[in-house]
Amino acid sequence: MKKLAFGLLIVAAISACKSNSDKKYLPIYGSKQAVTKTVDGKNVTDTIYQTIPNFKFVNQYGDTVTKKNLDGDIYIADFFFTTCPSICPIMARNMLKVYNTFKNTGDFKIISHTIDPKHDSVPVLKKYADKLGVTGSTWWFLQGKKEDTYSLAENNYLVLVKKDNSAAGGYIHAGYFVLVDKQKRVRGAYNGTDPKEVDQLIEDIKTLQTEPDEMIAQ
């Protein structure tokens, strides 16, 4: 009898494990703040997560793009420049895989920021996108003030990378793909030069897409 109970316990433990991994939840990165509100006479503590602040760039079509243009979208942000001969072609090759997987999903975008706006003008970005085979509005190549791009990268998108990467200043060139959810919260960073990490990114986007509304609503 004892043996049977023990056996049951093991089965229960295994199945518990299983159901846990089924409900995969991606961590939320960035600073957190606990806020206590009074709702219906009760004190409720809520967590406010760091979100991507507003920005203003121009895409390859010459259209202005702000944070609002990404409302309702899961998106990936990365940093590149069109004349970069080292890691950028690998990143582009890997990002194309992500693009081709999700380009027909309505709630997904990629924004690639140039860190060389002097050379990468709107026409240069358009030509680059055309040659890469990118059409429509799923993948935008953004151009703006260099300091705006750097500040956004350092203070928001790459905070997660910054911690892990001791090479100061170098991480913006490190080729990370940053995953952002519909609430503009950073949910992951993946080495864009590593096909395995990019496959994980594709899986994690699928996970984010199935995230139920109550979680999204915080």
Binding site: P85, R93, K131, L132, G133
Partner: peptide, 12 residues
């Protein structure tokens, strides 16, 4: 990096 592991290049 540019020409790819299989020599397949990158789009156009």
């Amino acid at each position: 990096n540019c020409h790819g592991a299989k020599g397949d290049g990158l789009s156009a």
